[in-house]
């Protein structure tokens, strides 16, 4: 029982990182109706930029700033090339376009960083916290706290500001939004920057916990974010968070009870079952309808 609870605690902590990646995916998808396969690789570029500064002796704040800036630049590049330039065209073209740019980003990073792994600074040096029989790793607690704060911020931004209203308007009806004078191009750019900042933070927290970075982080982050988004329901912000947490808890429980090799298998099994039985995800029936319209012509 203690194991089970400990697994849930660890799962929620790990899952909060997935939740951030899912949140970035769902923002881009929800507003722009585009699947950005290069989202994970953009974050990977960001943490490698951070590492570049770290290797040259920069302080933690500089590394954080560099990571966020690198992610934003990479993601804006993807957004302008794959989505802005082909935005009026078909969704499948944009997906494939974002895939080839992923290949490009990965190769560019490997050219600059040819080794298999590189170090990343630790974000916190606190001792683990013990509450009765349950352990809380300090890195995880930091991650969880950051995620909770960020979510509150995102919620305020989306539901309490002019930019947030514009986001929701574009998400629900881009044509009507243009009639209101909402500039779609700028909203698209704003979403790309916002998603990149969220992803960059996720990258910082995850790389800071592992204290290393690898080029395959891009693939990993795209997978985790995509699964978190799909489990929760595409385009749903609370859905992405629930999806990320569910994914984290499921992974840890499966690893504990079945073994490490079942971690990813369980995640994909969960995803496949969800898609077949409940394609709208945990929260998000209405999204299915709209997504259908967006993808009708591929």
């Amino acid at each position: 029982m203690v194991d089970f609870l400990q697994n849930i605690v660890d799962g929620v902590m790990v899952g909060s990182g997935y939740a951030l990646l899912g949140l970035g995916f769902t923002l881009i998808f929800g507003v722009m109706r585009r699947l950005n396969l290069s989202y994970g690789p953009s974050v990977m570029v960001g943490i490698f930029v951070g590492t570049w500064f770290h290797l040259r002796g920069a302080g933690l704040l500089a590394v954080i700033a560099a990571t966020l800036a690198g992610t934003v630049l990479a993601n804006v590049y993807v957004d302008r090339l794959c989505f802005w330039a082909v935005r009026q065209r078909s969704a499948i073209t944009a997906v494939v376009s974002s895939f080839v740019i992923w290949m490009q980003l990965e190769e560019a990073v490997i050219l600059v960083f040819p080794d298999r792994t590189y170090p990343f600074p630790r974000l916190t040096a606190l001792e683990p916290i013990e509450l009765g029989p349950i352990f809380f790793r300090a890195e995880y607690v930091t991650m969880f706290a950051c995620v909770a704060l960020l979510l509150a911020g995102v919620w305020l931004l989306v539901y309490r500001t002019r930019f947030g209203l514009a986001l929701r308007a574009v998400a629900q009806d881009p044509v009507a939004a243009r009639y209101m004078g909402i500039p779609l191009d700028w909203i698209g750019l704003g979403v790309a920057v916002m998603a990149a900042l969220i992803g960059g933070l996720a990258g910082l927290l995850i790389a800071g916990t592992d204290q290393l970075v690898i080029p395959k982080f891009g693939l990993w982050a795209t997978y985790k974010g995509l699964i978190a988004m799909m489990l929760g329901g595409m385009g749903s912000i609370p859905g992405a968070v629930c999806g990320g947490l569910l994914l984290g808890v499921a992974e840890i429980q499966f690893v504990w009870y079945l073994g490490a090799q079942f971690r990813d298998l369980a995640a994909y099994f969960l995803l496949f079952t969800f898609l077949v039985l409940r394609p709208g995800g945990l929260l998000g029936q209405a999204i299915v309808r709209r997504e259908l319209a967006a993808f009708r012509r591929i």
Binding site: L35, A91, E291, F295, I298
Partner: peptide, 9 residues
């Protein structure tokens, strides 16, 4: 399943 749902499945 349609579009992205099929793709991810």
């Amino acid at each position: 399943l349609h579009g992205l749902y099929f793709a991810v499945a």
